[in-house]
């Protein structure tokens, strides 16, 4: 069996590949559900009902998709430039810390100013956190996969120290969490009696802006060129290092947005369970979207629907909601395989 490169990849194949990957993932999960003694069809029905079956379910899915859009965009932008940012999780917490530092009463600013200000500050924090590993990459060729991944643990331990130590809220009855953000820093709710907040709109706007930047701007041109071929880019006069550093700031900033949005929109305060791995799921989202910023929105909605739906499925059928994690992980693996098969064709000799 050998792989042979396809000369031309048809646009149908490009779209079919991730869809097929998702089907494979669901198929794999069906086997697990069968194994646990339930009908996959019923299970998926509950999953669908739990994620899209009611107005509330839909808003829950959109709320869950919000951080995934941000981290998915973060991964997509970085991966376009072949900057393998695995550190969105840490950058998310960096943004969350910034929101906590500035939004819990230190600066009593009005809401119309406070919210953009916190997002900007969070983006800077996330961007700066990725800048370190990126400088090591451009100066000393240190592998950013390793540095960004390990930086996640360092950041998380730092947050751990903060919420158990100096930032611990005395009003929280001993729970390790920071003080809540002040009222002017809370993101407005979009629909009453739901948790859907303005962060979702900001996420959609970010996806639009990212798409325009990549497609129509000079920076986007440079990011794409550097991602495809660094050597030729340098030869053509593109400032490769500068482009990679800009990309890092862009990517880290988007992940920082996710942290601000979760603290100010959903939770209201910083805790250690702010993110159940949104940074890592963002990688899956970006890959499912084939690194397309608008595709990221769709992919994030899909992953969010699976995980919200799995919660309701597990309540109704007593199947572990880890099935959502399995589906997410398997869809990443199968999308990687599908992308390979979209570029190459299998030949049996």
């Amino acid at each position: 069996m050998r792989l042979e490169q396809r000369e031309n990849i048809s646009p149908y194949l490009r779209i079919a590949a991730p869809l097929l990957a998702v089907l494979v993932a669901l198929g794999f999960c069906s086997v697990l559900i069968l194994w646990s003694g339930h009908s996959p069809l019923t299970a998926f029905l509950f999953l669908l009902k739990g994620s899209l079956g009611s107005k509330f379910a839909i808003t829950e899915t959109l709320t869950r998709a919000t951080p995934l859009i941000f981290t998915g965009l973060a991964a997509a932008v970085a991966f376009r430039a072949q900057l393998w940012n695995i550190g969105a999780e840490g950058q998310l917490y960096a943004g969350a810390c910034m929101a906590t530092l500035l939004g819990t009463g230190m600066l009593p600013l009005p809401g119309w100013f406070m919210i953009p200000f916190l997002f900007l500050a969070g983006a800077i924090a996330g961007g700066l956190l990725l800048l370190g590993p990126t400088l090591l990459k451009t100066w000393f060729s240190v592998d950013e996969v390793v540095t960004t991944l390990l930086l996640n643990f360092i950041t998380l331990l730092f947050v751990n120290w903060l919420v158990f130590g100096p930032w611990k809220d005395p009003m929280a009855m001993g729970w390790p969490q920071a003080a809540p953000v002040i009222d002017s820093a809370v993101l407005p709710i979009l629909l009453p009696k739901t948790r859907l907040h303005v962060g979702f709109i900001i996420a959609l706007a970010s996806a639009m802006i990212t798409w325009v930047t990549l497609r129509f701007s000079r920076l986007g041109f440079e990011i794409r060129a550097v991602g495809h071929n660094k050597h030729a880019s340098r030869f053509a006069g593109i400032p490769v290092r500068k482009t990679i550093l800009f990309t890092a700031f862009f990517s880290g900033g988007l992940a920082g947005f996710a942290g601000v949005s979760e603290v100010c929109g959903l939770k209201g305060y910083l805790t250690l369970d702010l993110s159940p791995g949104f940074g890592y799921s963002g990688i899956v989202v970006a890959m499912l979207a084939a690194l397309h910023p608008l595709g990221v929105v769709l992919a994030a909605l899909f992953i969010a629907a699976i995980s919200i739906g799995a919660d309701s499925m597990s309540r109704s059928l007593n199947i572990s909601n880890y099935i959502a994690d399995v589906a997410t992980a398997v869809s990443l693996l199968s999308v990687l395989a599908a992308m390979l098969l979209a570029r190459f064709r299998l030949r049996w000799r």
């Binding site: 060129a225 495809h228 050597h231 030869f235 053509a236």
Partner: peptide, 18 residues
């Protein structure tokens, strides 16, 4: 092919590359 052009980008963008 590896220095003069960026193969995965379209003709148009390669002409404008410099």
């Amino acid at each position: 092919t590896s220095t003069g052009i960026i193969g995965d980008m379209p003709v148009r963008e390669n002409i404008a590359l410099e």
